[in-house]
């Protein structure tokens, strides 16, 4: 009886191992299939980008929607980011008697790292999910098919314009957000001190060098590109009706956020090689 039970336990554990192996195998296969499809989607984007006709009107419309309409959110978060970072950093610097370093430290933190990453994450939440949901909704209501049967290339009209707009708009938004963050930092410094506007910015630009600004701006082009690329990819290939719309919006943000951190890590490594 005991022997039988041992054999049965062994068989059960074997079954569990086989089924979990199958599940890992399926997940791995699914992952590689997804990567292949995303690569094809990216290659198609670059092909369609250079091929005429060009959708200038839609590009400008998307730039207005993606860039200008995101400005209030980016401005508010940028201001709070600068203010809070200054307030939080002051006590630590005060302990070492280095309060005079506060403007430069906050500026370098914002411009190099926090500004681009936080702005890109907010951008992914607003723009990435919006693109994913919009395209998925167009897909399930057959609007993309309707464009295709009218002889209009929906990839060029919907995908290329959105990715290009997001790639160009995010760096501008990040620069604006950085400026507003520094103003927030100026307010934060003056909550418990009295530093003039001129002195505050002189202290910032004293310590800021070209290698702080240039790589930080360059990486935001890549952030904008992946946010829109993933939003478009998830939305354009959506299925399963309204469930698919929710899934596209959700996964666009999750994957874009993850990619922003991965790209940031790569960017930091590359920058450190040259500096």
């Amino acid at each position: 009886m005991l022997a039988n039970s041992k054999i049965s336990n062994k068989m059960d554990s074997k079954k569990v191992t086989t089924s979990s192996e199958n599940s890992y195998g399926k997940s791995l296969k699914g992952f590689f299939e997804e990567v292949t499809l995303l690569t094809r989607f990216t290659v198609r984007f670059f092909k369609e980008l250079i091929k005429p006709p060009y959708e200038f009107n839609e590009f400008f419309k998307q730039s207005y929607l993606i860039g200008y309409k995101s400005l209030p959110l980016i401005a508010i978060t940028g201001f709070i980011m600068g203010l809070v970072l200054t307030i939080q950093s002051r006590p630590t610097l005060a302990q070492f008697g280095a309060e005079s370093w506060l403007p430069a430290m906050v500026a370098v933190s914002i411009i190099r790292e926090i500004g681009p990453v936080v702005t890109a994450l907010i951008f992914a939440g607003k723009v990435g999910s919006g693109i994913g949901a919009e395209l998925a909704s167009m897909k399930v209501t057959e609007q993309i098919d309707a464009m295709e049967v009218s002889g209009i290339n929906p990839f060029k009209y919907l995908v290329v314009t959105r990715i290009l707009s997001a790639t160009l708009m995010l760096p501008i938004l990040v620069i604006l957000s950085d400026v507003i963050s520094l103003y927030g930092a100026y307010i934060g410094v003056n909550l418990k001190g009295d530093v003039s506007f001129d002195l505050f910015f002189i202290k910032i630009f004293d310590k800021l060098v070209f290698t702080d600004v240039f790589p930080a701006v360059i990486k935001t082009f890549f952030f904008g590109f992946v946010v829109a690329l993933l939003g478009c990819y998830k939305g354009y290939n959506s299925s399963k009706g309204t469930e698919g719309v929710a899934e596209a919006a959700n996964t666009s943000v999750v994957y874009a956020s993850l990619m922003i951190f991965i790209l940031d890590m790569i960017a930091v490594q590359v920058t450190s090689l040259f500096s």
Partner: peptide, 17 residues
């Protein structure tokens, strides 16, 4: 080019929202 000579009315009308 061929598609421009063919009209297609979708079940849901598929108007651009």
């Amino acid at each position: 080019v061929l598609r421009k000579k063919i009209g297609f009315l979708f079940q849901s009308a598929a108007l651009y929202d």
